[in-house]
Amino acid sequence: MESKEWYYRLGDQTFMVSTEPQLVSHDFIQTSFSDPVMSSENLRIMLDNSCLLSLYLKSRDHLPPSKLTAESPAAPLQPPCSFTQIGMARLVTDYMTLAFLTDVFVVPEHQGKGLGKWMIQCVKEVTDAMPGLRRVMFMAKNAPQTVKFYEELLDAKMHDQERGKVVFMSRRDPEVDS
């Protein structure tokens, strides 16, 4: 799959979702899966077999004025940008018929800004571009707001569950399931 990027501006902050594997912070993912810590080899295997949509906060690197002017006097003076990973959504997929959505989260200090919703909209765009996709499956916390969130954004349906803390949901392709 070709890498994709999306940008979202909120006040003076710019956020990016990217599927580019080279941008992924292995330290961020290790911290996110801190219990138990995954070996570097296992992390590489996991990432190689996934479509990872990483959420980043864009920031400018502030260099001292002497460094800015010494680089290239003819070039416009713009500090380089850097991206800090603050969230992710992972699709385990064959890129053709099935996708399993997992590991969806945004770090607590950036929650409540609509970033999770935006990231899921990016996930939907990725899965909508898979021509033979028959089903997107995932498990979610069995809470009314969580179920409603995925029903609205992914047109997902909750499957029969009785009093479980986690529910199994999927988005169906009406042509396949009719």
Results as ranks from 00 to 15, higher is better:
T97H: 08
T97D: 06
L98E: 04
L98P: 00
L98R: 06
A99T: 08
A99Y: 04
A99M: 06
L101M: 08
T102R: 01
T102A: 15
T102D: 10
T102E: 11
V104Q: 12
V107K: 15
P108M: 14
P108L: 15
E109Q: 15
E109F: 06
E109P: 05
Q111N: 07
Q111M: 12
G112L: 03
G112I: 03
G112A: 05
K113G: 01
K113F: 07
K113P: 01
G116Q: 11
G116R: 12
K117E: 10
W118D: 10
W118Y: 13
W118G: 06
M119W: 14
I120D: 11
Q121R: 14
C122Y: 07
K124V: 09
K124I: 09
E125A: 13
E125W: 04
E125Q: 15
T127D: 00
T127N: 01
T127A: 01
D128M: 03
M130Y: 04
M130G: 11
P131T: 02
G132W: 01
R134N: 10
V136A: 01
V136L: 14
M137R: 07
M137W: 03
F138Q: 00
M139H: 13
M139E: 13
M139L: 08
M139W: 09
N142E: 06
P144A: 06
P144E: 10
P144T: 10
